[in-house]
């Protein structure tokens, strides 16, 4: 058996790469693009739109680094195909700061409380917390409530204590505490 036999067999019989056109709103701007059906929304955001603030850690839903808002709700961009986002309203970390670079209350709080070290998890954390802040649902600012809120976002640096503080501080800054 040739070493490549297995490899050759697994190449799809047709080399066609099915494509589709999508129109969606990203951070308030309407974009239309042709995408491969298999393109993940995370790759579309990072490579198609060059919005590299959205990070990719695991590509199977576990780490939360790729969290963005889809139609107002936090979701994993690595577990959504770009074609599925046709017509959707997407919000990424790039929408947080003002155009002149002024940080949002959430970003300020993370900075003040040292809620980040390497920063890899931070965009996903912030989009998840943003979705919850903006949902109008009740905020539980107890340690347990905040830990529950960020339980789907892994951070390998901070030990979470300062992230919990940052969420509480952000609620204060945003007049929600």
């Amino acid at each position: 058996m040739s070493r490549h036999e297995h490899l050759e067999r697994s190449i799809p019989s047709t080399s066609a790469d099915p494509k589709a056109e999508v129109t969606l709103t990203v951070n308030g701007v309407s974009v239309t693009r042709e995408v491969s059906t298999r393109m993940l929304l995370s790759d579309f955001i990072r490579h198609g739109l060059r919005l590299t603030g959205t990070h990719v850690g695991c590509e199977h839903g576990v780490c939360g680094a790729c969290t963005v808002m889809i139609d107002g709700r936090a979701a994993r961009s690595c577990l959504t195909f770009a074609v599925q986002a046709d017509g959707a309203d997407i919000r990424t970390i790039e929408s947080e700061a003002e155009e002149d670079g002024t940080l949002s209350a959430l970003q300020q709080a993370f900075q003040e409380c040292h809620g980040l070290q390497c920063g890899y998890c931070t965009p996903g954390m912030i989009m998840n917390i943003r979705a919850h802040f903006d949902s109008g649902e009740e905020l539980d600012l107890s340690d347990e409530g905040i830990r529950e809120l960020i339980s789907g976002n892994l951070c390998r640096c901070t030990g979470y204590a300062n992230i919990v503080k940052a969420v509480r501080r952000a609620a204060e800054l945003a007049g929600k505490a």
Binding site: I70, R73, A74, T80, G152
Partner: peptide
């Protein structure tokens, strides 16, 4: 069941 962002979809 999982976390809110996963339950959202």
């Amino acid at each position: 069941v999982a976390h809110v962002p996963i339950r959202n979809r």
